[in-house]
Amino acid sequence: MVDLLQKAAKNYTVRVFVQAILTIWAVATLTFLLVREMPGNPIDVLIEQILTQEGVSYQEAYDRVAASFNFDPDASLLDLYLSWLGDLLRFDLGTSITSPGTAVIDEIARFLPWTVFAVGMGLLISFVLGIILGMTMAYYRDSFLDHSLSLLSSFMTGVPNYIWGLLIIIVLGIQLDLFNVGELRGTYDISLTPGLNAAFVLSVFKHAALPITTYVIATLGGWMLNMKSSTMGVLNEDYVNVAEARGLTDKRIISAYVGRNAALPLFTQLTIAVGFVLGSGVVIEEIFVYWGIGHYLFQSITVRDYTSMQGVFLILTMAVVFSNLFADLTYGLLDPRVRISGDK
């Protein structure tokens, strides 16, 4: 038994899994404390509000807040914590405070796919473009092309992504009048019925186009620079020289020898980017009025809907943790060197 446990602890897959679960548990605890114990926490604020507005006794105000937060007013903090964790295990994130009866998890399920779509498309496009441009920069290093692309990448990474979004709206949308900003709000044209028809799919892409473009511009610079330095490292490797000496075609060397190996380290950075882009989505989606999870988070903050707030926050964290986990688990498939040593 102990032997088995020891083996499990040494197993890479088990370890990253346990790590991910622990992280989510820690964040869940943090969220719990944030909502209940932080100065200015929503429960105290609501109680205060009811006390001053309606002049009822403290106990009654507390009971009413407990009712709207779905917790037993007589339970101790520990009990509350345990029951909250129990609910979480059943994916029960409670019901919304401002619209009673609506389960937070259903709302999240309604908004999250749009964000995943926009962020996923954006990252995919910028990743592929960045790898191509970064390799080009490395092959033509110190040329005019290299210098101008690296200057461009400074602009792309330096300028905050919501500023890119605003620039797109102001310059392309308003000043040059290339598209109607108002029409592109929301996630699809509401006159269409959702389904697998051409008009609907087209409208989905049209509405996501601006957020996707923004994500691409804002993340492309980073991929370019990383891919350039990674490629330059690989170009010095012996196996590239050997491949050249063996007379392999340039095309084969670039794609199978240089490209593949140089792109590997970037996959781990992709998961960091997922977290960052998902997080920054709050502003981007607000700016373009794209109805994704960030928009939902912001709406719940403005109406101080705390259960929705903590639910979305938890789901966002889980998304980041799981994408990290996914990267950790698949990295071995991409890089045989890791698979053999069994550890990074």
Partner: peptide
């Protein structure tokens, strides 16, 4: 592992 900007958004909304 915690998305930093949403955390800030939530905290700024609370505080």
């Amino acid at each position: 592992a915690i998305p930093r900007f949403p955390l800030l958004v939530v905290m700024a909304g609370l505080i």
